[in-house]
Design a protein around this nucleic acid. Structure first.
Lengths: 209, 209
DNA sequence: GGTTTCGTGGAGGTCAAGATCGGCGTGCAG
DNA sequence: CTGCACGCCGATCTTGACCTCCACGAAACC
């Protein structure tokens, strides 16, 4: 029997630096996701990781930096996911569907990372605000390029539309997750919202109001 | 000479209880909107109102109750605004436009009350979470009734669509406000998003995917 | 097998912010 | 004119959370 404590690191075990850091990040993510930034105490994170506070501070200079590290990962994940979805096909309708599914996947999986991005309670901190806004902005910009390529709208106009689509995906996905009635499976909900989005954005060059 | 300091209450002036309370609420709203809940100090609110902290605590039992009072007002305002917009006409397309304009008006005016609802940094507090979720839920429910009346969808399905529309309005309006380029006037932006929404939701009974 | 070294742990300092007590000035009744 | 009541202010207390100091134990090396 291998005695590798891969998922059950007991208290007192010495870990290599990178493994320890990864473990701390995972524990911190759990606590931040569950409690938010303010209600999350460094003691809780240390306890959750099975270490004491000083080791936490040997890996991260402070609470904010720890939070920002997790936030950066989460932000990069959703942005990359959206970019991949847009690159996955050349058919715009399928692009919409793929992007919507990317959002729903991110909200449903990713161990609640979306809470750090879309439900952060530290948006007054400029560094956090900047990152969170960046997510919406970069996602919308990626969508906007596709829109303005085919719809012939101004940059501002296509950005407003793109932000609308991103907001639709983000808010509906969070609502779907919060509504704990699994009568609507994830794929069906995403498809439904995708069809709404595609009806709205598809063939937009017509400006018949 | 009337010494009524109607809009410039200097420090030391004695006000009737209700007027003082209203003034405190206004000052608190400004500080909470500017700084968020956590960064807002009771000292700041008292200073902004031109009184000392004990007076504040003679009107409100604590910081949370003060915040909740403002939050309730803001929540009721947007929900009522959406309901009025939906009731304002029988043409569904104009309903969409009116509702979208209601959101944009709320975000642009209402002295930043939308920040308390859509950008609260106290969503971990259950009482706050409940109120904020209620706003999206009630707005979406009002929209959902119109949808399910005409589109023949299940309750869950029309709710997901309604939440999507609400999310679209909410996120795009906030983005439009944050983007300080007035190249897109409020009415144009709202009309653009309304047209997107109407194309998406109008004539939804077709399920051509 | 001894020593050195490094990581770990519990206990404590500091500080900000929410929440509260003794003086004071003002307006009114007699 | 004089005493009284009332509401406001400066100064203070406490709590809670972030962030470090001193002793211990285990691993590594000769």
């Amino acid at each position: 029997m291998s005695t590798t404590p891969e998922t059950a690191p007991k208290r007192g075990s010495r870990l290599p630096r990178l493994a320890r850091r990864a473990q701390l990040l995972e524990a911190a993510q759990e606590v931040f996701v569950a409690n938010g930034y303010h209600a999350a105490a460094m003691d809780d994170i240390a306890d959750r990781a099975g270490v004491s506070k000083p080791v936490l501070y040997q890996h991260f200079p402070g609470k904010l930096e720890l939070y920002l590290a997790l936030l950066d990962t989460s932000c990069d994940a959703i942005v990359a996911s959206v970019r991949d979805a847009l690159k996955s096909t050349d058919d715009n309708k399928q692009r919409v569907t793929a992007t919507m599914h990317a959002f729903y996947d991110y909200v449903a999986n990713a161990q609640g990372a979306f809470r750090l991005v879309f439900e952060s309670d530290l948006t007054n901190e400029p560094s956090v605000r900047e990152r969170v806004d960046r997510v919406t902005h970069e996602c919308a910009e990626a969508v906007s390029e596709v829109i303005s390529a085919d719809a012939g709208l101004s940059r501002q106009q296509s950005m407003v539309l793109a932000v609308s689509l991103v907001g639709m995906a983000q808010v509906s996905a969070r609502y779907w997750l919060a509504a704990d009635n699994p009568s609507l499976p994830q794929e069906h909900a995403a498809d439904l919202v995708a069809s709404l989005a595609w009806r709205g954005i598809g063939g937009f060059p017509r400006t018949d109001g």
